[in-house]
Amino acid sequence: PAAATWAKPTRKGEPLTLEKTFTPVGRGVSLLIACNTFPTWNGYPGLFASLVTGNPVVVKPHPAAVLPLALSVRVARDVLAEAGFDPNTVLLAAEAPEDRVAATLATDPDVRIIDFTGSTGFGDWLEQHARQAAVHTEKAGLNTVVLDSTADYKGLLRNLAFSLSLYSGQMCTTPQNLYVPREGLATDQGVKTPEVFAADLADALGKLLGDPQRAAGTLGALTGEAVRARVDKARALGGTQFGGEPLAHPEYPEAVLRTPLVAVLDADRDAETYRTEWFGPISFVIATDSTARAVELLRETIAAHGALTASVHSTDEEVLEATREAALDAGVHLAENFTGQVFVNQTAAFSDYHGSQANPAASATLSDWAFVTGRFAVLQSRRPAVATQEATGA
């Protein structure tokens, strides 16, 4: 409420009465540090949450993706001016790749809110050094899939192949670690060992990406040299591998495309590899001693390194419940038995949560109330009602 009258009864005479007013006040300057893969999708929530709570916003786009947010800032400034506000309520602060504008602004005492999407390294730095601000980060982590059993093996493969391919795995929600029991995944087409499952997944990827036009539209290009180097590093791991091969873009011959790489690892022998984030079109089929061990690894790795998504495939309700409990312990959102046209990468606005403050991969959740309410304070003023009456001549 904007105003309220408060009264406290007394033993003698009139009650003590106060007139109170309540005014929401913005926290201060908001800094939006955007990513290069989804500059608008990841940028708009913080931009509008800050504006609606009364905070000016400095938009700092990624050097590799300036145009989308530059256009957005231009439109925002035009609309603000038309509505009678100072257009400088929204500003653009572009930088060259070698600049450190983001770090400089982030530690400025006047910056009181920060929204960041990007690398774990810089996100951790912001959380540690921008102590004067409320810092909302969305980083990345070890997105995990527990594969126990399924009644729709083809649907599982199709769904997972698309999830791994979308934007060449350059999404914070792309699965990386796929746990399969050594004795195999029980399916409607028989038991599939980790090696067989990996081969079947590679075949599903081949069918999805067999048409060059569809492959280009699904994969897009690799965003930079760091991702390309990471794919090459993964290929150098050796062992049983599928994919990771160059593709030609039918419209942009200079674009760099790679098919998703799927490598088979051992849960005991290769822990150092799969407990590391491999951002890009890289995923691991990891042989575990049992489904129970896979669930425990989900809990351990996500609690330690974070994740944006987790998935489980099982026809056993006890396994589903155990995985759900592990996901709650680890602080990650869970998708169960996705075999159709809904994918773990997708987040529906105002119906799904994106990110979790409960694990290291993010310090904010889109779009819960806390994402908005921390951007303003409600301040009150109080005065005796008698003084109000006297001032008005009543």
Rank of each mutant, 00 (worst) to 15 (best):
K8M: 14
G13R: 14
T17Y: 03
E19N: 12
V29R: 10
L32A: 08
F38N: 10
P39D: 04
G46R: 11
G54E: 00
N55E: 01
V59D: 01
A64S: 10
A76V: 04
A81Q: 05
N88I: 06
V101Q: 04
D108V: 02
R112S: 13
I114G: 05
T120F: 07
G123M: 02
H136M: 14
A140W: 14
A140L: 13
D148K: 05
R158M: 07
F162E: 03
T173N: 04
A186F: 08
D188H: 04
P194H: 09
A202Q: 10
L209A: 03
P212K: 06
A221M: 12
T223I: 13
E225I: 10
E225M: 11
V227N: 05
A236F: 03
G243L: 00
G244Y: 02
P250R: 05
Y252T: 13
P253M: 06
V256F: 12
P260S: 10
A267S: 15
R269L: 09
D270F: 11
W278Q: 08
I286T: 07
E296M: 09
I302E: 12
A304I: 06
T309L: 02
H313P: 05
D316I: 00
L320E: 05
R324A: 02
E336S: 13
N337K: 06
V344F: 07
F350P: 10
H354V: 07
H354A: 08
S356M: 11
P360C: 06
A364S: 11
T365D: 07
V372W: 03
V372D: 03
T373Q: 13
T373L: 13
R375A: 06
R375K: 13
F376Y: 05
A377E: 15
L379H: 15
V386Y: 06
V386F: 11
A391Y: 07
